[in-house]
């Protein structure tokens, strides 16, 4: 198609879609109303399960199967990235050059790193009580580790990041969720049933399986993001085509 024809087709389609969607939105219940059948049910159930953060109760208890699927999507996406960004036979690995970092940036990164790590772990551990949980905390933990790359350099990051170990943790996190679900079956209830004692409302030890599932997801997400960024870093810094290396060597010879 010519560019013009493509734009016409696109415009017609977008116009139709927008008209349909706008007409539908006009028929929606008004914003900020008081009728929330699902929300009311979810809050009642969350309180009955002694989970202070209703969102966590929905994610890890009432609709825990969705979260298994979502965790698996991230798991599959990272695995897919590992496969797609692998080093192919016509590529070679070179050691990246050490980079010089302004001292101020270095000081900042080294100071913030433990703080960010702690916040991440806190967010994972308090998922059943306050906003956050395995997904959010896991990403924060993974991001915190990468402050080393920003503050020092890639080699410093590599020292604290044996990718193999994180891949193991990735698998363990995903597997732990599946197995925790099966524990519900072994306890005589349904798959992913919250069979543990519910504990005291609004304390760390509450919510039954919710904190455990949060921990599993936190582990999976943190290591998955580390593995994911490791592939991107390797592609950007280390992996070069054979041709480039040959050219460089030739130049050095000259």
């Amino acid at each position: 198609m010519t560019r013009r024809a493509r734009l016409w087709v696109l415009a017609a389609g977008l116009l139709g879609t927008a008209a349909l969607f706008a007409a539908a939105c006009l028929r929606m219940p008004p914003f900020g109303g008081t009728w929330h059948p699902y929300g009311d049910r979810a809050v009642a159930a969350a309180i009955a399960q002694r989970t202070a953060n209703t969102v966590s109760s929905v994610n890890f208890d009432q609709r825990a199967l969705d979260t298994l699927g979502e965790e698996s999507i991230l798991f599959a996406a990272v695995l897919g990235t590992v496969v797609l960004l692998r080093r192919t036979p016509d590529e070679r690995r070179v050691a990246p050059q050490p980079a010089s970092v302004p001292p101020a940036l270095r000081r900042y990164a080294i100071t913030v790193l433990p703080l960010a790590l702690l916040i991440g772990l806190y967010v994972v551990a308090h998922g059943q009580l306050s906003p956050g949980g395995g997904f959010q905390g896991g990403v924060v933990v993974a991001t915190a580790l990468h402050l080393l790359y920003i503050g020092v350099d890639h080699r410093a990051l590599e020292r604290v990041r044996p990718v193999g170990l994180y891949e193991l943790a990735d698998g363990v996190g995903e597997g732990a969720y599946v197995v925790l679900g099966a524990a519900g079956l072994l306890a005589g209830s349904a798959y992913l049933a919250n069979t543990l004692p519910h504990g005291t409302f609004n304390t760390l030890a509450s919510g039954g399986t919710v904190p455990l599932l949060n921990a599993a997801v936190g582990m999976e997400v943190a290591s998955a993001v580390v593995v994911l960024l490791a592939r991107f870093l390797a592609q950007a810094l280390e992996i070069v085509d054979e041709k480039t290396v040959d050219e460089k060597e030739e130049k050095e010879k000259e």
Binding site: L68, S72, L79, D170, G171, V172, E174, G175, V178, V179
Partner: peptide, 9 residues
């Protein structure tokens, strides 16, 4: 899913 987790881990 468990199988995939084992294979990756």
């Amino acid at each position: 899913l468990l199988g995939a987790a084992v294979l990756v881990g």
